[in-house]
Design a protein around this nucleic acid. Sequence first.
DNA 1: TCCCATGTTGCTAA
DNA 2: GTTAGCAACATGGG
Length: 258
Amino acid sequence: MPELPEVETLCRQLRQVILGRRLLSVEVLDERLGPPPAVAGLAVRQVVRRGKAVALLFHGGVAWKIHLRMTGRLLWETDYGLPVDHLRLICHFDGGRLLLIDPRRFATVDFDDEAGPSGPPDPFAAEDPAGLRREAARRRLPVKAFLLDQRLFPGIGNIYAGEILFAAAVDPRRPARDVTQEEWERIARAARAILREAVRARGTTVSDWRDLFGRPGEYQHRLKVYDRRGGPCPRCGGEIVREKVCGRGSYHCPRCQR
DNA sequence: TCCCATGTTGCTAA
DNA sequence: GTTAGCAACATGGG
């Protein structure tokens, strides 16, 4: 479910509530997550995003990495008592509880993360279009699949990849190596703008995304193509089509995305 | 009943 | 080596 803007939203909100707070105890309710870790008593030193994952860095050198996959949610709860469905993990901090909720149980928590103090650079932040084109030069897979490569663009997911390609007017099925320099420039520009705006809007709620405090995001109101099959293209009025690209539901306007 | 799902991994085969 | 396709993970919604 969550892509870069949603995970970034969680990280920012987590910093508001758990930075410097002490972790008192941990309850693992789903054995798939592994045995409960022995970090009780440690205070949170830093919260960083690693692509689509949240890393909690504790004093003492311990780090956790939380990946929400499709349906994982993090919820900060100060008002205890309401029963919560699909609760998988409870972290008791001084001041509140951090809950991991996940109906499909795909989310993972690495209680022994080894990665460093900072996350990978934001996709497109430093990437120059010439570098993108070089990277794509030998790849004939669809440009959308290329954008979903987490090693190259950590945090980009299906919704935002589709929106970025729409904004750049590039057909998601185009082989990556055929994308021109000028198109890479448009893609990089669109990616920066869309991701920034989506973070500002606290993410996209099309089904069940909620932020750390249970509120839906706002970016769904600004999606141009995702989940809009049959609708008019906001740019040219053409009909938006849905088509599988690299095994994922994909939306584009065949009239103005070339 | 069937199809779909904002993610990732691992396998098989071309 | 690259890529496509599929299944798996497990559940809920339309």
